[in-house]
Design a protein around this nucleic acid. Structure first.
Length: 269
DNA sequence: AACAATGTTCAGTC
DNA sequence: GGACTGAACATTGT
C-alpha cells in the first residue's frame, strides 16, 4: 500500500497520537528492519527521550526527538503500518484498528504511560534507522513546483514512468500512483522524458496534483480511478478500450491501449 | 509449485 | 554519470 498518501496519513497519526510521550523501552531486535543498526543501538539512542515532531518527505518519515536526540527514520516499505496505542491500551490506526499478529510487530517504542508505537509489517520490507539521508530524495511530490517538475520530468531520455518512480528526482510516487498519473495525463508510460513537450509535462503536473489530492481524500492510492482496471481483461474507465500490460522501469505497468498508445520507437528494445 | 506483489538498493554492463 | 537489467531482500497471497 504505502505511497505518499499512505505515508502522510501515517505521519499524521504519529503527530496526533505519539508525540511528547516518554520512551521507556525500544524493541529493535529485528536486524533486517533495523539494518544497518545492531540490536540495542536504537534502544540506547531513544530510551528516555520523547518524539517531538513527525515529518515526511516522499515515502520517508522521520521523528525529531527531545534533548537533541537523533531523528528516528521510518519507511513503510511495501506494506508496513503504524499502530499507536494509548495508555489505556486502545489502538489507533489509519482507517481504524485492524487485526494484527504480534509476530509481525517489527519495531516497538514503549512509552512510560504503558502505550506504544509499533511498525507492523508482515513482509518485513519496512525499515527503521537513525538520521535517514533525506537529502538523497528529490522534492516531495506534494510540494514540487510546476517549474521544478517541468525540469525533472523532461531531462534525460529515460521512460517517463521510470522517472516518476525515481525517488532521487521526485519523492513519493510509487508504482500505482505512477500508473494513475500517466493515465490521467494520457501519456504513455514508455514515452522518453526528453521527448515530452511542455503541454505534456504540464498535463502530468496537473495529474500528479489531482491524483495525490484524490488519494489523500479517499484514503489511499488503491482508490485511484484506473487502479481497478489493472487486471487481465480490464478496460479504460474513460474510453472503454482494452488495458495493456507490460514492464516499464522494472515494474508492472498498465495503460490504456487507445489513449496512452506507445509511440513507435519508444518501447525499449 | 510457480509466480507476482504497492519498495529500496546494489552489482554489473553498455 | 546516465540508462538499464537483474537480482536480492522476506514474506504472503493467488
Amino acid at each position: 500500500m504505502p505511497e505518499l498518501p499512505e505515508v502522510e496519513t501515517a505521519r499524521s497519526l504519529i503527530a496526533g497520537e505519539a508525540l511528547h510521550r516518554r520512551i521507556a523501552d525500544v524493541d529493535d531486535s529485528d536486524t533486517f528492519v533495523c539494518r544497518p543498526h545492531s540490536p540495542g543501538e536504537l534502544r540506547a539512542a531513544l530510551t528516555g527521550r520523547e518524539l517531538t515532531r513527525a515529518r515526511r518527505r516522499g515515502k520517508t518519515m522521520w521523528c525529531e526527538t527531545s534533548e537533541g536526540g537523533p531523528d528516528l527514520g521510518i519507511h513503510l516499505g511495501m506494506g508496513g503500518r503504524i499502530v499507536v496505542t494509548a495508555a489505556d491500551g486502545r489502538a489507533a490506526e489509519v482507517g481504524g484498528p485492524r487485526p494484527r499478529k504480534a509476530e509481525w510487530d517489527r519495531f516497538t517504542l514503549t512509552f512510560t504511560d504503558g502505550g506504544s508505537l509499533v511498525l507492523f509489517d508482515k513482509r518485513r520490507l519496512g525499515r527503521v534507522r537513525l538520521n535517514p539521508d533525506i537529502d538523497a530524495l528529490g522534492p516531495d511530490a506534494a510540494e514540487v513546483t510546476r517549474a521544478e517538475f517541468r525540469d525533472l520530468i523532461t531531462r534525460g531520455s529515460v521512460a517517463v514512468k521510470a522517472r516518476l518512480l525515481d525517488q532521487s528526482k521526485i519523492a513519493g510516487v510509487g508504482n500505482l500512483l505512477a500508473d494513475e498519473i500517466l493515465w490521467r495525463a494520457k501519456v504513455s508510460p514508455a514515452a522518453r522524458t526528453g521527448s515530452l513537450r511542455r503541454a505534456e509535462a504540464d498535463r502530468l503536473y496537473r495529474a500528479l496534483r489531482a491524483a495525490l489530492d484524490s488519494a489523500i481524500a479517499r484514503g489511499g492510492v488503491h482508490t485511484g480511478e484506473v487502479i481497478a482496471a489493472r487486471r487481465p481483461g480490464g478496460t479504460c474507465p474513460r474510453c472503454g478500450a482494452e488495458m495493456r500490460h507490460g514492464t516499464v522501469g522494472g515494474r508492472s505497468t498498465w495503460w490504456c491501449s487507445r489513449e496512452q498508445a506507445v509511440q513507435p520507437g519508444t518501447w525499449p528494445q
